[in-house]
Every structure is written in structure tokens, then in C-alpha cells.
Amino acid sequence: MLRTRSSQAVAVALAGLLLAGCASVDDRSRAAGDVAVRLLTAVADRDGESACSLLAPDTAAEVADTGDMPCAQAVLDEQLPGPGTVTGADVYGQWAQVRLTDDTVFLAAFPGGWRVVAAGCTPRPNRPYDCVLQGS
């Protein structure tokens, strides 16, 4: 009897962990998608401050370096597509890829949540995506 109860408890715990894992991945995918859309929306709305606050530090620094002006101004000159809608997302560990109707965005996990590492990305056969905006 004791063994049966223990087995049931273990099965319930494992099922709970599995469900929690799936829910966690879904939540993280949704959160990554939100950040990607917010970035592209901010650029479309000419809100450079908000856009740069959603970039990973290295990416924000690269945007400023390349444009030779503050990130909030430089990011508005980048030829990023409009926000569109999220068509899919993959999350693996500290990284996420969000696919939108007109863009693919790569994000990394930071203490404050997902931050965009690269955006405006187009695929190249057997090579990394070519991105309008990315860290060094």
C-alpha cells in the first residue's frame, strides 16, 4: 500500500514537473515574442529610448558605435521592418529565436528579461543569419 502511494506520488510529481517545464517554455517563448514586437514597434513609432532599452548591452553599444551617435538616435536609422505578428518562437536555455511575418529576431536572457541581440535578420544557406542590427 505504502509502495503504491509512493509510486503515485512520484508519478504525480513527475507529471507536475513535465507540465511546469512545458508551461515555463511557453511562458518564455511568449515573453521573447513580446520583447521582439515591442522593439520593432518602438522603432516604427520613432521611440529610440524604448527601443534601446530592449537591446542587449553589446548590441546597443554596437548600434551607437556604428551610427556614431547615441543608441536612441542611431537605432532609428537602422532599416528594421515593421513589427508584424509572431509566427513562431523557439527557446533553448539562455537563447530565443522569434519569427515574425517580416523578420527574425534573436534574444538572450538577462536579469531584467529577454533582450534583443540581433534583429532584422534574413537567413543564408548554411551560414548565420544576416542581421541589420546585432552585437559585435
Partner: peptide, 11 residues
Amino acid sequence: NEEQLGDLQDP
């Protein structure tokens, strides 16, 4: 796939 995404490649 974590490495793939870090290298800006598809999973």
C-alpha cells in the same frame, strides 16, 4: 540548439 541560436542560426 542553444549554441545554434547564439551563432544566429536556426535550431
